[in-house]
Write a protein that binds this DNA or RNA. Sequence first.
DNA 1: TGCCGCATTGTTAACGTGTGCATGAGGCGT
DNA 2: ACGCCTCATGCACACGTTAACAATGCGGCA
Lengths: 348, 348
Amino acid sequence: MSFPVPGRKPISIKDIARQANVSHSTVSRALRNSPLVHPDTAEKIREIATSSGYRVSAVARSLVSRRTQTIGVVVTTIADPFNAEVVSGIEDVANAFGYSVFLASSQSDPVRELGVVHSFAERRVDGIIVNSSRVGSLYQELLSSLSIPVVFINNHNPGGFAYSVSIDDVAGARQITEHLLGLGHTRLAYIGDRFGLQSNLDRMAGFQDVIERAPQARRPARVVYGDGTSAGGAQAMGELLASNQAPTAVFCYNDRTAQGALSAIHEHGLRVPEDISVAGFDDLPVSSFCHPPLTTLRQPMNGMGRQAMEILEQLLSRNPKAPDMANKFVGDLIIRRSTGVPSIGKQL
Amino acid sequence: MSFPVPGRKPISIKDIARQANVSHSTVSRALRNSPLVHPDTAEKIREIATSSGYRVSAVARSLVSRRTQTIGVVVTTIADPFNAEVVSGIEDVANAFGYSVFLASSQSDPVRELGVVHSFAERRVDGIIVNSSRVGSLYQELLSSLSIPVVFINNHNPGGFAYSVSIDDVAGARQITEHLLGLGHTRLAYIGDRFGLQSNLDRMAGFQDVIERAPQARRPARVVYGDGTSAGGAQAMGELLASNQAPTAVFCYNDRTAQGALSAIHEHGLRVPEDISVAGFDDLPVSSFCHPPLTTLRQPMNGMGRQAMEILEQLLSRNPKAPDMANKFVGDLIIRRSTGVPSIGKQL
DNA sequence: TGCCGCATTGTTAACGTGTGCATGAGGCGT
DNA sequence: ACGCCTCATGCACACGTTAACAATGCGGCA
């Protein structure tokens, strides 16, 4: 450890104690509004504290209290608007409960994700929220070995030993697909995420399941893969457009993918929804300002973040009211103008 | 302080010392790879440590070292993609340097922003990065009184006492405006941000300045205000469209505003760029997937975050090489298809 | 043999705060 | 006057780690 620090050494309760002619414990009590100290002394101490700009050291306090009032949030990347919305919700209620949040991104790299969790453990965070982890059950034993409460968001862990908040991907995909079939489409396609996320598997499963039960639908429905970004969506949509039997309706893994698909369709000289309908998943804030505005399945991203933090707070509080283990949200189908009735000319 | 914590008490170096029949300081040295301990003892100690899942307590270490290896990042809201990109850059290099980052959002509320900084001070962060603060010089004395290194991003503080990383808003706005004039537009408008940000003032100043010097431009150019979001941009664009002399080219404070403007123009039955050209500022990842793809001024958001953290690391390191105080980036004009030659029909 | 130096380990204090326990000063009732 | 109770405060230790300093043992060398 190296000691030469920039900046002056901050003042401590001992400095205040010396100035007030009391012991440091009296200062400690006074600043915590303990009823044990005489009002006059307390007043005097508080005055010295504020005028000298004293700030209690959370690190010293944490050492004795064994509570840091911090939580760690793991995210693949904060640059993904979905994660940003979730973190926004987390941070909001964490702040309300007096917790500070450590943010760390894994960049979808399992090694880095492990490193992040280790660093959280060393920092003695009170709890951890893992958002859309791409790391499988492999390291869940590590998380459980930390004996720190952990809440997962959108990470369907088969073990079920952990608390989780997630969207019902299967039901959401069903709603989208039924909407498209209801409009009269028969040639549907799905643009997925190639990283093997559970959410992708579930959305595809919901899609396939509805297709299977629809007599009029062309089977098997085509499936191509992007990477969850707009660029990946555009490239995948390009593949679909290059085939001689392009679909009339495309369901995309998420809104970013859908935005890329929209872009590719426009580049190809076709119109949405007259030539091809496009639907997404998430309802990012920007999606209502796409051209055309995107039909999608709204995920309460902010709300899911909030709930995850509320669960964590429950786990960290002293009252034993245990929250539900699995908390599943149902999304709302938001119909905008990127989906419509297929034009007769293109049909068949 | 309340003691009943969930989870077991983590093991300490004393536990390891007992098990290895050495003193705790030997354990401390061994785990830090000090050459002072005998290789055999070190090996034995390390073995016990790993097998028992020991994790050093960063909080105890911080108490003695007076360094927490953490930084605080203040942001208006992480849900703004611009901030998310910046934070992504910060987090990336912070991670590389071994720092953990506290993320806190002010929601543009000065009271909350002050609270956030106080909490950072109590947590004894080694440094602070403030991104696009809407709080003026009012509380900069507070920040300086903390005697903690602070780096501002896109916050032109007149005092100049602090380190800052920013984009050259005036020059950027000039480039955009000259581009629009060069296409042949004469009726230009600016959609600003009503919150009085310095960046808005500078972009508007650059815009106005170029307009002033262009004989063919209609003066004064119209200026309306949004709030930096797509919804605000759509609403402001609506005002422009409602007037009988709508502009043929609109420069927007940022890309989100521009996306809203695009949406409003489409809703109004007009085409971009045939009827109205639209330009933004930032070059968000999504902007190249707009319809049409957005002409904008690229801000190296990630790079600015990275540089801010690099400066902070320099300030925190022991070598006295002091970085530049003011670091100004020049953006790149990215010409896409949302801007074009004004159609003759509309032109006066 | 006695001394010096080196290698290795132990002892102790410190970081800043919280709290159990002891202490002392009054007040009050008998 | 004495004992007891309450109120206010100080003392001492704990939290887990680091580092300055002391101590121990050993080999070499005069």
